[in-house]
Design a protein around this nucleic acid. Structure first.
Length: 518
DNA sequence: GCGCTAATAT
DNA sequence: AATATTAGCG
């Protein structure tokens, strides 16, 4: 489309749009009517809000827009606004001589789609039809003639194009909405609520992923296994994408650290690396009870044991990995591996055998509701080969969730900073390692990897394990976030604290506010 | 049609 | 900031 054409298109507006104008002041009303007429709207006027209301009630679907003064004796314009909003979902524009923000705010709060100041200018009135379009009231727009002539010759047919350069926010809305409008003719149609990934919902997600195995966990299957009403494949896909991003990031970080550790173990004499914190002199971390229950804020140390049995999560990667060796200065040397019991003793939700549904919370988000019997016995803990590690998966996932992973762009080069840092490090430059070579051998644990690589490689477990050590030692660069930070920042604030670890059913919501069921 | 990834929108 | 949607590809 040429610029001229675009300009033309912007200039078109519906002729005959049915406007109800309300103002107790006869003069104002007359002026308003005149101006609206000039805009080629079909205008009905009344000097009382009460009458306006009756007109609207008696002629449902006979008006497209209401423009009403605020200060009126019989009925406050806001009251009218409120009632109209309640009863017919028409776009209402408030008109007032008061520029007081309080008034404006009040209008906005009550659902006014615009707030015009007297005296009204015709330029403003020319634009008001867009509110109708925006309100998705296209059905009611059927009688409105959209001037569709995009030819360049007759631009002044409406005589209103002159001052359209300031058409500001509506530029491209027009055509799109026209096209879209036909499908969008249900006034009651509301935006789809978004899914709020509560801990519990995420737990279900994890259970499904765990059940399927990370490699085979695909949106559709996960969705089926989760068996959550109203959850869509797209929801799951989106979450899965984030999940994998987090995994990738953590793994890469861990790999970095593994590299460092490996180097460290062989070149311990290097002061440069010592400065970064080596892994010798491992201090054992208390693995006893309650790290997670103590609350993230108080948890100085990430529970190491959580992550070292990821074989269940990554079924194909664990066996080949050396772990907890005492020979040869291996990176995992000295790492305490807690008995499974310690981990399993923690209460965690048996999310796997239940069906839940999402309900709409007041903020228009879908939150996990309750449970019913599931038709998916396959997710029964007893039947899931991986279930016993769910707790640790869960914990691990806490870390993932708290990690602020950019959704795109930034992480396309995972850990570029750290990678560069490493390549520029003394170790690399001293020739102990060849950064290039490392880059060429990602399978060697030495460089960023693709998701596919990650899913197939044996690195994740070890990497995570090592990463834990790093974190535990406080050797994690501050910009990578402390463990506390990771755990703390994961879930939405409402859930970040107690809820984070309990696996209880609390959503951080006040359940009473969830009454608005679908 | 699905899944994946990245990019972009809401 | 967290999710959703879209595009391009296999």
């Amino acid at each position: 489309m040429t610029l001229e054409q675009d300009f033309e298109a912007v200039d078109q507006f519906p002729v005959g749009m049915r406007v109800l104008a309300v103002d107790d002041d006869q003069t104002c009303l007359r002026i308003l009517e005149t101006l609206l007429h000039r805009c080629q709207y079909h205008v009905t006027t009344t000097d009382s809000a009460q009458t306006a209301l009756e007109l609207l009630r008696e002629n449902k679907n006979k008006f497209d827009l209401v423009i009403s003064d605020v200060d009126m004796p019989d009925m406050d314009g806001f009251k009218l606004l409120e009632l109209v909003g309640l009863e017919m979902d028409l776009p209402v524009i408030m008109l007032s001589a008061h520029s007081d923000p309080k008034y404006v705010m009040k209008g906005v709060k009550h659902g006014a789609c615009d707030y015009l100041l007297k005296p009204v200018r015709i330029e403003e009135l020319k634009n008001i039809w867009q509110h109708v379009v925006r309100k998705s009231k296209f059905k009611k727009m059927k009688s409105i003639v959209i001037n569709d002539d995009h030819s360049q010759g007759n631009s002044d047919q409406n005589g209103v194009k002159a001052n359209r350069k300031r058409k500001d926010q509506f530029e491209e809305v027009e055509e799109e909405d026209e096209e879209r409008g036909n499908e969008n003719d249900d006034p009651t149609a509301q935006k789809k609520p978004r899914v709020l990934w509560t801990r519990e919902l995420h737990n279900k997600f994890l259970a499904a992923v765990d059940h399927l195995g990370v490699e085979k966990a695909q949106p559709k299957k996960i969705l089926e296994l989760m068996n959550v009403d109203k959850l869509t494949r797209e929801n799951v896909a989106s979450h899965l994408q984030k999940f994998r991003s987090a995994l990738k990031k953590i793994t890469n970080e861990a790999n970095q650290q593994a590299n460092m550790a490996a180097i460290d173990s062989h070149f311990m004499q290097m002061s440069a690396l010592k400065g970064l914190g080596g892994f010798h002199n491992q201090r054992q971390i208390p693995l006893g009870s309650g790290q997670f229950h103590g609350g993230a804020a108080t948890m100085r140390h990430y529970p190491l044991g959580r992550l070292n049995s990821f074989g269940g999560v990554f079924p194909h990667v664990s066996s080949s990995l050396p772990r907890n060796h005492n020979d040869g200065g291996y990176v995992l040397q000295g790492m305490p591996i807690p008995p499974l019991d310690d981990l399993n003793n923690k209460a965690f939700p048996s999310f796997t055998s239940q069906q839940s549904s999402l309900m709409v919370a007041p903020n228009n988000q879908l939150v996990l509701q309750g449970h019913q019997q599931s038709s998916y016995p396959s997710l029964n803990p007893g039947l899931s080969p991986h279930f016993e590690i769910n707790k640790r998966l869960d914990d691990w996932s806490n870390a993932l969730l708290s990690t602020n992973i950019p959704q795109s762009g930034v992480h396309s080069k995972p850990d570029a900073l750290e990678w560069n840092h490493f390549c520029n490090s003394d170790a690399a430059q001293a020739g102990f390692i060849d950064p290039l070579q490392m880059k060429q051998q990602p399978a060697n644990n030495l460089g960023p990897m693709t998701d596919a690589q990650l899913l197939r490689s044996s690195n994740p477990i070890e990497g995570l394990f090592v990463g834990q050590q790093k974190l535990e030692n406080g050797s994690m660069p501050s910009n990578a976030g402390s463990l506390d930070d990771i755990v703390n920042s994961m879930m939405p604030k409402e859930q970040s604290q107690a809820e984070l670890f309990e696996g209880d059913l609390g959503f951080g919501w006040h359940n009473s506010s969830l009454r608005t069921c679908i």
